[in-house]
Design a protein around this nucleic acid. Sequence first.
DNA 1: AATAGTTTTGCAAACGTTTTCATAAACGTC
DNA 2: GACGTTTATGAAAACGTTTGCAAAACTATT
Lengths: 343, 343
Amino acid sequence: MSDTKPKISDIVAVAKAAKVSISTVSRAYNHPELVNPATRKRIDAAVRRLGYIRNRAAQTIHGIRSGTIGLVVPTIDHAIFAEVIQAFSDAVEPYGFTLLVASHGYDLEREYGVLRKFLEHRVDGVALIGLDHSVESYNLIQRQEIPAISIWNYDKASILPCVGADNRHAGELAARHLVDLGHRDIGLVFPPITDNDRARDRKEGAMSVLDTLARAVPQNWIVETPYSIADTKEAVTRMLAQSPLPTALLCGNDVLAVGAIYAAMRSGLKVPEDISIIGIGDFKGSREMEPGLTTVRLPARTIGDLAGRELARLVTKESTEIQHNSCDISVVVRNTCRRMQGF
Amino acid sequence: MSDTKPKISDIVAVAKAAKVSISTVSRAYNHPELVNPATRKRIDAAVRRLGYIRNRAAQTIHGIRSGTIGLVVPTIDHAIFAEVIQAFSDAVEPYGFTLLVASHGYDLEREYGVLRKFLEHRVDGVALIGLDHSVESYNLIQRQEIPAISIWNYDKASILPCVGADNRHAGELAARHLVDLGHRDIGLVFPPITDNDRARDRKEGAMSVLDTLARAVPQNWIVETPYSIADTKEAVTRMLAQSPLPTALLCGNDVLAVGAIYAAMRSGLKVPEDISIIGIGDFKGSREMEPGLTTVRLPARTIGDLAGRELARLVTKESTEIQHNSCDISVVVRNTCRRMQGF
DNA sequence: AATAGTTTTGCAAACGTTTTCATAAACGTC
DNA sequence: GACGTTTATGAAAACGTTTGCAAAACTATT
């Protein structure tokens, strides 16, 4: 009969229970040194007894930071972004931030929508993947004066501070490696490049090298396929049914490369004896697979970690300078590319 | 000189600009049918001009839902959780929810901390992976009366509503399949099972079958390894150096199975001729790999999707009944397990 | 032109906090 | 024991919204 009020308790309830004013309770949280240890103990007991949990929403409307950071990715379900998200999350956690995560499925309209929603939640900062964003998105960020950072691609001319790698260079490196091994007949396996600056840059980089140092890539040696092993295996298998065949395949990333390797295996081609395959990314597992995948290493964990820390510091005003960070990349040679005779 | 106030605009600014009261602006958002179309247009123009974005924190303290759902996973950077997170995210998005995501690295203490933080942010619901949680976590959920759901494991006795598969059964199925093929000498590859009910259930399921239908598994045929291809490859390679060798390896999930396959390849063993390997999970890529991985299919996307929808409906009160959903599982036979002679 | 409805709007209280300012209590000093 | 400090507390305003209620402005009806 006395157990009315099963209500979730607020600061008022705590104050009452501890027989102090709400100001004191608030202070016990925010400036504990200003409240008498004995009082603090009483408040603590009341909090525990009532199961009180502070309401950050109520704090936030005082201009206090919300303690959240928004991260927008094309998709979560991809080895590389999963790794970046994890690293980013781990990096901002020590600063006390909670992560809001959303994906847009490579649709920049949706990205804008997500961004707006994050802003409604008054995130303290936002991180985006890559540099391709709608002008509305850029305007929003500028207008709301919210700390923002771009992850994964690097461009010294970027409007946003960015932490990433030079993807054009990655494409060049991969192509150059194949050429150096003596390959001249090279096929390309890439994802759609609309709304995806990373893939576009890589492809352009690769093309630029190939155009001058190898044979022009015929259209039927270029396969476009979504980021999925299944789709890639299927598409590349179709491509490998024709003849003549390229001696090497340059893949836009490691997932595509793995798909391509499986396609080759199924087509009865030995890698690297019959066909060489190079990826970009160096995902988890690329090193361990048999044969080990030759690829261009992009340090995903490092990038996510750096980006998280950089943004957190920007938000907490620990640092104010807006930096552009370019991570070093290089070819890691394993066993999926063979040297051509005479090279 | 007149461009003072570069301030982020609030509802008051909008009201002023549109020459209406703030109540009207608020209403234009929440009950548009109650405001004159002409006025609405004016407000709309003001909003656009000022770049106004609603403050959800301010709404939230009125008892209005925050529009967020918290998802706690052991790790984001794992094929299976990435897939679940994506599906879950896609499922709650149509309901207008934004996702708060955090990982605890298989540490239930940290899980509790994350949970608290989510509650501070007044998430409208929480989703956890599995059924192993600290009693503090359970108490917290109960006390705060927050809709919660458990993903990935299924137990009809679970306190929380759960959407998942019966992991014990998965372990049984895998073991049974191996036994049916005539294997009697079977090794086990599992992750640490503390704080991980999924792995524990699978292992128990497998053991129970093996104990009665196969030879008792000697200790040196059991390898414990973290969820990583690299670690698994290394650990299994060490194990395969001994003799006698088991004729089959039962792996706690597909990542471990892939690691085991690479280990076998490196050790000069052919799969499945020299050694059979079965996984659990059927991750993306397991079908496509060469040879295709025989495994027990756990429908990750379906589970994430179902869980997301279920929780969203629970939060929005569209449904109130707390359901336990068990997803069907079955062995999918591909090419990594061979039939023993005479079977 | 007066009345009764209906639609549209504004006022003010409320939400759960933080923070400024003022006051009370305790302490030390001479 | 009167005074100035220091320490601890409380009252009340503020934050950016929503919403119940009442007033104002229209419309339709006579």
